[in-house]
């Protein structure tokens, strides 16, 4: 480990069990654990030609490189999550050397401990609710069978076209309203099983599957590990109650969405955790 930089995946509490010998991380190198006064940073050596400031900037614009790096990073965090509750770092947190990492652990010690306290014993589950894509002639979410059947023939006249459009619009509005009701209820129910919850912006963009339809809910829940099964069962019980809607669950993740400082005060600059309400009842 010569002039390589240090890529940091996550921070956790010692003693973290040794990771699988075959686990490789970013840059193909196996991660190491760096301990400093009650905190462990999980790091990999990475070459400066790729992870120095300028080359890194360039790489981040390359979706293939970005995807590969993100997956390698997530691989390591997921492995850690089986033996501890790691505090994941954002992508591309890089230091010059070990002493740089130790200095960081020293400086950030209080904040890191606070967050680790909060996430200890928990995992994150992601939940998304999708409203199915409308049928080709805009008849809404497709759960109104008769409307779909009727529109399979071409409109017979201009007035017929308008009539169908009106019906289609009404159906779509209704489907959206029902989806909204379902999502609110689901979020409320799931929040009761979670120490904390986050509503993320609805998912869209070029990485979203075209056939997914419209994202109604995109949320994350910090759930005590031992409640995960009940949490998932609750979601499972909604099946059959929500025509036209699809619920997608991802996880268990490390607590990516819950890494804000529980003690954050208002900061004038948009710092991490600023302007975010305190989560109230933490376990």
């Amino acid at each position: 480990m010569n002039d390589d930089l240090r890529y940091v995946y996550a921070v956790c509490r010692p003693p973290a069990a040794p990771l699988h010998a075959d686990l490789t991380g970013v840059g193909g190198a196996p991660p190491r654990q760096l301990t400093h006064e009650g905190l462990v940073a999980v790091v990999s050596p990475v070459p400066e030609r790729d992870f120095g400031r300028e080359p890194l900037r360039a790489h981040l614009e390359d979706l293939r490189w970005l995807a590969e790096t993100a997956r390698a990073h997530q691989n390591v965090v997921a492995a850690l999550a089986t033996v501890t509750c790691p505090l994941p770092l954002r992508l591309a947190t890089v230091f010059h050397d070990d002493s740089g990492v130790r200095a960081m652990l020293e400086d950030e010690s209080e904040r890191l401990h606070r967050i680790l306290d909060r996430i200890d014993g928990h995992v994150e589950w992601g939940v998304k609710v999708w409203l199915g894509a409308a049928s080709a002639d805009g008849d809404g979410s497709g759960d109104s069978g008769s409307a779909a059947a009727a529109s399979s023939r071409a409109p017979r006249s201009g007035r017929d076209y308008l009539r169908r459009r009106r019906a289609g619009n009404a159906a779509r509005e209704e489907a959206l309203a029902r989806a909204d009701v379902f999502a609110r209820r689901l979020h409320g129910d799931l929040s009761r099983y979670a120490a904390d919850a986050r509503l993320h912006p609805v998912q869209s963009g070029p990485l979203t599957d075209a056939g997914s339809g419209r994202n109604i809910l995109n949320s994350a829940y910090l759930v005590p590990r031992t409640w995960s099964e009940e949490f998932l069962e609750l979601i499972g019980r909604t099946e059959g109650t929500r025509p036209g809607l699809r619920v997608e669950v991802t996880g268990p993740w490390a607590a990516y969405s819950f890494t804000d400082d529980p003690d954050a005060r208002e900061e004038p600059h948009g710092g991490e955790g600023a302007a975010r309400q305190d989560a109230g009842g933490t376990p």
């Binding site: 940091v8 994941p88 770092l89 954002r90 230091f95 010059h96 990492v101 990516y256 890494t259 991490e272």
Partner: peptide
């Protein structure tokens, strides 16, 4: 997501 830490690089 994840913690944002200002480091040397």
């Amino acid at each position: 997501g994840g913690v944002v830490i200002t480091g040397d690089i």
